[in-house]
Design a protein around this nucleic acid. Sequence first.
DNA 1: AATTATGTTGCGGT
DNA 2: AACCGCAACATAAT
Length: 282
Amino acid sequence: MPELPEVETITRRLTPYILNKSISHLSIYHPKSFIGDSDQVLGQTITDISRRSKMIRFKLSNGMNLVTHLKMTGQLIYVDDEHKVGGGHPTQDWVRNLPSTHTRLEYHFRDGSKLFFNDQRLFGWMKLMSDEEILKEWNNLGPDASSDSFEYDDFSQKLHRRAIPIKLAIMDNSIVSGVGNIYACDALNLAQISPFKTAKKLDEDEIRRLYKSIRQIIAKGIAMGGTTTDGKYVDVHGFAGGYQKEMRVYDRQGEACLHCGGEIVKSKLGGRGTYYCSVCQA
DNA sequence: AATTATGTTGCGGT
DNA sequence: AACCGCAACATAAT
């Protein structure tokens, strides 16, 4: 479920709580969720936390990295004795009762605080990786949609070489990384481009609009703290995001397009639900 | 009961 | 080679 804005929100909100903390124990409730020798995290301090695409990288003091991908239903929940979010207001009640049936991993820090990795569908993982392994894998990724390295010229050139529908192109992490189904649908609506249009058939003006729209929609997603439509995505304290109140077309079939008032329809593309305006994205 | 789900990978056929 | 559809991973809700 989480796309770039959700993963970025988790990364930002988690960092002040666990940076420089030492892992004293790791409980593995489901072996599929942890890849590598779990003894290598014991006693290690988290020296840095960053995001790339939809993954989070925790650097450890022994030089290894803990990398996580939440896939469809993964959550990272932080809990300590205070049970307070910044500003003094309390966390969601249910996080106090963790671990739950969906808790797969539980990290215990030396100061008594904990980090829970919950994942209903077991697609997600946390994996120990060396710097070399990360470099090798991440080199295959296109630039993050939220970063300055996402540049118009490169984006345009890549699109000109592809004969796939534009929606699939912008969800392809080797072209631009971090854009999933929700933000792809919304960015295409903002740019007023059909999700089915072949990538190489977009003219310069369309690519320009799309490039700006992706940047704008992803930035808004981050600013709103991500999207929660079914309760699966929550932040590190268990709270919903806010972008669902701003959604342009996703999950709004039958409603009016914010741009032209046309009817929003739902279709299928690449096996995924695809929402678009039947008038201005025809 | 069948269909659906915000991610990714891989397979076989064209 | 590139592209497409489909299945796989596994679970729960409608």
